[in-house]
Write a protein that binds this DNA or RNA. Structure first.
Length: 442
RNA sequence: CGGGGCGUAGCGCAGCCUGGUAGCGCAUCUGCUUUGGGAGCAGAGGGUCGAGUGUUCGAAUCACUCCGCCCCGACCA
């Protein structure tokens, strides 16, 4: 991609109505634009990042043999009446009616719908276990939307649902999703920790929130900081004993949200120097339901004795659009965003220092043609001042900048600037690719 | 949902108190000069002042109503 073609109109000044750094930076870097309170357009740059995150989540679900489907955004009120959540969910649910006055709603979540879907297909104990997910827009009519896409009304969520034949099996699915989540967040380049949590209107008996610690987060967390010492092992997902063992390891450490926090227990059992009270952003939330939904919706299967039983289920959410903001919130500086390489809109920013110079232009063009075949790259080919070029790439947070200017290229050198450290290295043009491979994971 | 605040050019703001028909910075366009960290000079374009009603000879300015948006508190991916 060339900047001369790319739809990118960064703002020099900070928007006044944004409070969080992530919100300001997303507006300044032209990633999003608000269209109504808590409702946003994802502009090209923002959409690339959103899709990158989606795809990382997709790939890892695929690795775990979890299948994707796509449920609609608009649902009929019928199932929600059966589960009795049509009234319980309250004003957060956006209710709509169609031309025939049928009651519809813009889905805030999909437990009812997915339970109804699978109950038509999963009839024998032999059909289990199954985990399905989709990545779909949700709408929750928040009392007070704020902080950009962090707490908005329309948001993109990955929600997975597990279906099993017993408590034991269902708990195992819960544990596997727990580990999958740790793996996903690690891959996204962020340190999100699991916390015991309340189940809220989603319901159930067991629940964990995955929270990314940040100074401005809305969730309060209490934990034993040595939980970070647990080494996340890439264990075999089908090895049930290893899965349970690793979960047990996590549950040995104190980590609770404020709703679950027990002050006395915390102080008695966790050493003072290890006690951590902090704030963070909830980016994932998992729930064990047991038969809560299957009973309401009458979802049964036949066991090996030919007897009908209720299906055991759980649900597992990741706030995909919120993650974009959360990642920024944990990785930025005074110049702008610093993307982890995995989610960066482009991994490399190529800068031709001066378009008017034949030598640097020739090299820039050649480098671009060569690199674009193999790498995600954006090429700054416009005739604007160098300061602008550098500041824009700093703002949009590309991990590496290749700066090609007449002075250095005449000595066969290219400047390689690392966004995070700001460090600039002069690298011989023939060794650029090796250098990038060695120092960056792409 | 309660409390506070804001709405004037694409963005950021001044003008409002004390009514007289709209201004600044950035951005945009043209020209010249510049060219290694958001350039300089000269010129130009761009507004039914959120909407409606009222008061007045006259309303961005005063009053009322509505709409939109932001912030602070109780809820949530």
């Amino acid at each position: 991609m060339r900047t001369s073609n790319f739809y990118l109109f960064p703002l020099k000044e900070n928007p006044t109505d944004a409070f969080l750094a992530s919100h300001k930076l997303m507006l300044r870097s032209n990633m999003i634009r608000q269209s109504a309170t808590g409702i946003y357009t994802w502009l090209p740059l923002g959409l690339i990042v959103l899709k990158n995150i989606e795809n990382i989540i997709r790939d890892l679900h695929k690795d775990f043999m979890i299948q994707e489907l796509l449920m609609p955004t608009i649902q009929s009120a019928e199932l929600w009446k059966k589960s009795e959540r049509y009234s319980d969910y309250g004003k957060e649910m956006l209710r709509i009616s169609d031309r025939n006055k049928a009651e519809l709603l813009y889905g805030p979540t999909n437990e009812e719908l997915i339970t109804d879907i699978v109950s038509k297909d999963l009839r024998s104990y032999k059909d289990f276990p199954k985990i399905l997910y989709h990545i779909q827009w949700k709408f929750r009519d928040e009392v007070r939307p704020r902080f950009g896409v962090m707490r908005c009304r329309e948001f993109l969520m990955k929600d997975a649902y597990s279906f099993d034949t017993s408590y034991e099996n269902s708990y195992l699915s819960y544990c596997k999703m727990f580990l999958l989540y740790l793996k996903i967040f690690k891959k996204l380049g962020i340190n999100a920790l699991p916390f015991e949590a309340e189940t809220g209107p989603i319901g159930g008996t067991l629940s964990h929130e995955f929270i990314l610690e940040t100074a401005n987060g809305e969730s309060e967390i209490f934990y034993d900081k040595t939980i970070n010492d647990i080494e996340f092992k890439n264990i075999d997902f089908n090895d049930n004993e290893k899965v349970k063992k690793l979960i047990l390891e996590y549950s040995n450490y104190y980590s609770k949200t404020s709703e679950k926090h027990k002050k006395k227990f915390f102080e008695k059992n966790v050493k003072l120097e290890n006690r951590k009270y902090s704030k963070g952003i909830e980016i994932g939330h998992i729930f064990y339901f047991g038969t809560k939904y299957s009973k309401k919706l009458n979802s049964m299967f036949l066991d090996n004795n030919g007897k009908s039983n209720f299906i055991y289920s759980g649900s597992y959410g990741i706030g995909v659009s919120r993650l974009v903001a959360a990642i920024i919130e944990s990785s930025y500086d005074e110049k702008g965003i610093i993307w982890p390489a995995e989610v960066a809109p482009f991994k490399i920013g190529l800068i031709n220092v001066r378009v008017g110079d034949n030598l640097s232009t020739e090299y820039s063009e050649n480098f671009y043609k060569f690199f674009k075949k193999k790498y995600s790259i954006i090429y700054e080919d416009r005739d604007i001042r160098l300061g602008q070029k550098l500041n824009i790439f700093d703002l949009i947070g590309l991990p590496v900048q290749l700066i090609i200017g007449e002075k250095n290229i005449s000595n066969n050198n290219i400047e390689v600037k690392d966004r995070k450290s700001g460090k600039i290295s002069l690298i011989s043009k023939d060794q650029i690719e090796d250098y990038l491979k060695k120092n960056y994971e792409f």
